[in-house]
Structure formats: structure tokens, C-alpha cells
Design a protein around this nucleic acid. Structure first.
Lengths: 162, 162
DNA sequence: TCAATATCATTTCGATTGCAACGATAATTT
DNA sequence: AAATTATCGTTGCAATCGAAATGATATTGA
């Protein structure tokens, strides 16, 4: 094939980027329009809800956000009254972030909608298709792990610290 | 399930965002480190190579980039000598963008690497798996099309105008 | 024909982003 | 213990981005 015939629309990295971007845009209307949250804030909210007393570093490691983004998201949510932040007693460098009652209420409102959106998305998927899709995604991650310059796959959700 | 147990790592929009971002980051080293191109510039290059004499609007419609991004990418590539830009004779508003020889040389260098990267990525996929993966992606797009607020799927590559 | 509307590419402007640097605290080494 | 090194969260800064405004040209409609 001649280089000039190369077509982006059949190129896997492009296809995934477009699909992911489209999905994210629709999802964002759920937390943005209704609750004034940005994407980083949405991710922080969800993670803090599941793992109490997390540090900025924890969040950074678990939800694929750069440290500055986490720090800024947390600051804004503390300001908005959704999160509470206190210095850890054991390690003064660390910070302990937790949900406030207001934050809990927002979470309670958002999660059902997020899940319903996901259900709608995968509406046409059979059980087998859904799990097969996950398998293929895993295969791609495994391949990426081999790349030296690939930002090492984050140790998702194992919540190593504390 | 309690809202607090909601786990991002099993949430489709999140999984796709992380995967796409990871792939894009590795891909970007190919055109960034070696040729000094940004992602928008990479997309513009490829599209202009395939469809000669395109307008900014064409590119915008075909490669999922906002108009300002296309405009800026083109400007920088003209500056770098990779593209030539002339006003259309038929419609003075339009612009006709084409590859220069230098641009063609860069393309010739990049495309094989991009394709080899894709091949490496899908290395573990069988024929069936690859096509099934595409099917599932299509199903998700179809579902997104139903969403009113979904940025209408771009009329990819049909190159309607001129 | 000529006013009103639409389309195109660019630019402006405020907001967001990531990298690197920073101050503060802990851990390690000598 | 003192000094060096590492880690944590935050901030400065330059670059990038998108929504809306702008100026220029085409198209439509009265």
C-alpha cells in the first residue's frame, strides 16, 4: 500500500481515540451539566468514595490523573464542600481526603446515572461479547506493557499504600 | 450495589479512555520525537496526503479535530514547509491545502512506522478477533448516535465537498 | 439588484494542561 | 546525630485547547 493511501479511519489508535472521546463527551454531560464537575473531579469523587482517607498520590496512581490535576480537583471540591482534607498524623507529608455528606449526596445521585449510561452503551452486547471485549482490551494493554516508553500501567485499584 | 462500591476500573467509558490515552501516548513518540509533529499535525498530514487539495473544513470533518486546531496545525506545517496553502479559485473563502515534497518525504517515513506499530499492537489478535473488535466498536458508535447531545458522528472520509 | 443570511478560516480570550521547580517532611546513609 | 536522598503536595509557567467573535466571501431571498 502506498503511504498516501493510508486511511486514519481504519487505524486502531485513531479509532479508539475517537470512540473514547465521543463516549467521554456524552458521559461528561452527566456530571458536568448537572453537578458542575469536571472529568478529573468526577474521577476523584468516585475514587475517594470507594477508598476512604486517600492521599493525592493514591488518587494519582489509581485513576490515571497527573498529580497537579488531582491536587487542583481536590482543592476545588474542598472549596465546594464535597471533600474534606486533613493532614495525616502518621506522615505529615500525606493528606487524608474523604467525602463530606454533601459529597456523598452528589455521589448517590450520580452513580445510578453513570451506570445506566454504561448499560445503555452496552445494550446491544451479549454477555459473551462484553467479556470478549474486555479480553481484547486486556490484550492491548499487555502489548503496551512491552513498550519501554509506555507510561507503565498503573497498579489500578490495588490501593497499595495505607 | 452501593454507590460507594462503584469502581472506575470496571467502567467502560473509563477503560476506553485509559486505553486510548495509553496507545496515543506511545504512538505520539513516533511522529513527535522523530519528526517534531503534534497529534493534530499528524492527523492533518495523513488526511492531506490521501485527499489532495482539501480545505480546513474538510480536515475538520474527517479527522475529528476542531477547526482552530486544524487551522493552527496547518499554519505550523506551512511554516515548516510540509504543506502548501492557496486560496481556492472557485470559492475565495476556501483554502486548498496540499503536500509539498518535503511533506511527502516525511509521510513516506512515518507511515511504515505507524503501520508497524498497529501490527505490533494487534499482534495477538486473530483475524476473527480483529474484525469482531471492529464490530463491537461499531455497535458502541451506533448507540452513541442515538444520543441527542452526541457530537454527531463525522461523515468520515467520504470527502463530500469538492 | 441589493439586503439579509450563511459559510469559511482565523484570531481572541479565558480556562486547562503537563512539566518542572519548590518547600516541607521522612527515610536512609554515613 | 547529621547529612544526604527520597517522597509528598502544591505552585509557576509556558503551551495548548475550545467556544465565541471577527472579517471576508458566497448564497439566498425579497
Amino acid at each position: 500500500m502506498k503511504p498516501n493511501d493510508f486511511n486514519l479511519s481504519g487505524f486502531l489508535p485513531y479509532k479508539l481515540a475517537v470512540l473514547a472521546s465521543r463516549i467521554s463527551k456524552v458521559l461528561s454531560t452527566i456530571y458536568e451539566e448537572r453537578f458542575g464537575l469536571s472529568m478529573p473531579e468526577w474521577r476523584v469523587l468516585v475514587h475517594v468514595a470507594r477508598c476512604e482517607k486517600v492521599s493525592v498520590r493514591d488518587i494519582h496512581n489509581c485513576v490515571n490523573l497527573e498529580k497537579p490535576r488531582v491536587s487542583r480537583a481536590v482543592a476545588k471540591m474542598v472549596e465546594a464542600g464535597l471533600l474534606a482534607k486533613t493532614a495525616s498524623t502518621r506522615d505529615q507529608r500525606l493528606v487524608e481526603i474523604e467525602l463530606t455528606e454533601a459529597g456523598q449526596r452528589v455521589l448517590n445521585d450520580i452513580i445510578p446515572e453513570a451506570m445506566s449510561f454504561q448499560a445503555r452503551l452496552m445494550g446491544a452486547f451479549s454477555e459473551d461479547e462484553a467479556s470478549h471485549f474486555d479480553d481484547l482490551i486486556e490484550q492491548l494493554h499487555d502489548e503496551l506493557d512491552k513498550h519501554a516508553n509506555a507510561p507503565r500501567r498503573s497498579s489500578m485499584d490495588t490501593n497499595i499504600s495505607d
